[in-house]
Write a protein that binds this DNA or RNA. Structure first.
Lengths: 308, 308
DNA sequence: TATTGGCTTTTTAAATCTAAAAATGCAATC
DNA sequence: GATTGCATTTTTAGATTTAAAAAGCCAATA
């Protein structure tokens, strides 16, 4: 079962396409088309389709390619379970969690990490690269790595929201701000569908993702990439924290409504009003202490400073 | 001459300490102390001091360690020249420059890069890691890397300044904003000294560095790390652009004065005034078209999209 | 008693080789 | 004429070994 990671990932993506109804029963999956869509070559796509065929989601017809099977929906449940997202992500989360809960010291050597997590050099490299990009790890001079005192606490949450309360409303007032109908329509669609669906049943991951997406897409319209990238980055950090928490779904409904309101205002050209609404929206999330409940106790940082 | 890079770097640092007068003639350099200061072990510090001794900047006394030599100042000029900052930085700049000027395609394989720049796997890795951290490179799925359409133009400059004009003044009005005497004194010292020195003689690199440092230190006082890190990041991007440009030194003097003014206001507790002054200060840099002159023509992006 | 100088240990970079995986080209087929 | 299925080529990851560099230790010394 140790097929290539890319193929695994793509198999998941394809499964998603089928379950979300974007690919309907009986439809023909064109290899090149999918490859282009995912930005890869045909090889891993083909491998993925092979896997899905053997799992029963697809059907292969001699010299004609792969087609979506009838009994697709039933099979999906199994598939979802054993295809964890590729392992790098898991290892990354493990490291992040260990650091957030002070189970590893602030300064470590690569060897230490490789032993602890049983990783190869490249695997570890990927993970540290990601942590570096996300801003909570850096190479020390000489040997070793240093993990930065990332916002580990609820206060960090407040700080992130204060930052967002500054840049998101301001983005709408930027001189180059332009409405983008495609973005607005797409977001309205997503937010509406969330309200229609039974929100209790949606996975927390998706709620968080859609929420972040809304804000990240909107800020794009300011046409200043530095606003956008800054938001993306604090959101990544936020997700690192939220990953370990439970979402309060009662608030999600209200948030969706507020999102739709903001879209309404924008469409009517009331940008200044929308900017205010955005500020209120973010302020609301802030004032209610924290939109999530913390599932771990934040203990003393003893292991932290073994250094000196 | 191929001593370890760390030692090279540290040798430069020590030279800087001597020339800046922080270490005076005859003073004893304590190995451990320096090692702590630079966050490394004594080995590379020792090696660096050996190098500097053989270059004549320091003097080694049997069993007593190293001391700053009399004739220090004369020697320095030589030293400065042949100790280029470690090579990784050069290669990184080369890659960045090639990308900014469209001399390499947007999608490349590692092999391509290794051949072009004659790098080992690890060296290339370092560089790509850095580019990733700075936000203009990312790994493709499968093989290869993608360079992102970084702000390559003067417009990017304006966008960066607009972003800064938002967050820097706002940072001073954050609820957790607290004056930090150490930061203020240190920055006043640096800025004053720049005014005292003949600014024409300071290397452009240092002018840019000190300028960025001022703002980055000040924003720290907001006690919201997300303000700080966002500024650091846009500044990194800015440096990527400025590296290829010439500084207009006539403006540097005024900037230093304005920096000192802001410090004055802060010390007198007039935070709101300081916030406004900061906004004006940044707006000034923005309005004058651009604080630098562009040394390359921005040609058509032909080579850019070989992809499809 | 703090600091040096030399020595040992630990850690990482570099080089090389092999295997896996992805990209690509092309004839066969619908 | 587009798309598949297979074969070939290219590219990268993994494993292993060697050398270099940094960290850490301890007796000697000012």
């Amino acid at each position: 079962m140790r097929s290539s990671q890319l193929a695994q990932t793509i198999a998941n993506e394809i499964t998603l396409l089928v379950t979300s109804g974007e690919l309907s029963v009986g439809e023909h999956l064109k290899t090149q088309q999918l490859a282009d869509r995912f930005g890869v070559s045909r090889s891993p796509v083909r491998e993925a389709m092979d896997m899905l065929a053997s799992q029963g989601l697809l059907e292969q017809k001699e010299n004609r390619g792969f087609f979506v099977r009838e009994a697709a929906s039933g099979v999906v449940e199994q598939v979802r379970d054993d295809t964890g997202p590729f392992e790098v992500a898991n290892d990354y989360q493990r490291l992040a969690e260990d650091w957030l809960t002070d189970r590893i010291p602030a300064e470590v050597t690569e060897q230490m990490l490789r032993e602890r997590y049983e990783l190869t050099k490249s695997q570890l490299n990927d993970i540290l690269m990601r942590a570096t990009r996300e801003g909570w790890a850096e190479r020390k001079q000489g040997y070793g790595w240093r993990f930065l005192p990332v916002a580990k606490t609820p206060e960090a949450f407040e700080q992130i929201y204060r930052f967002r309360m500054l840049i998101e409303p301001a983005a709408m007032l930027e001189p180059e701000f332009r409405l983008d109908r495609k973005i607005i329509d797409e977001q309205r669609r997503i937010q509406s569908r969330m309200l229609d669906t039974d929100i209790e049943r949606l996975p927390a991951e998706r709620l968080l993702h859609n929420g972040a997406l809304f804000h990240e897409e909107l800020i794009k319209m300011a046409n200043n990439p530095f606003f956008h990238i800054s938001l993306v980055r604090v959101n990544r950090m936020r997700r690192l924290l939220e990953y370990r928490s439970r979402v309060d779904r009662s608030r999600t409904v209200r948030q969706c409504r507020e999102h739709l309101e903001i879209l309404d205002l924008l469409e009517r050209g009331e940008v200044v009003e929308a900017s205010y609404a955005m500020r209120r929206h973010l302020g609301g999330a802030l004032s209610k202490k924290s939109p999530i409940t913390w599932s771990w106790s934040h203990q003393a940082h003893e292991k932290d400073n073994l250094e000196k």
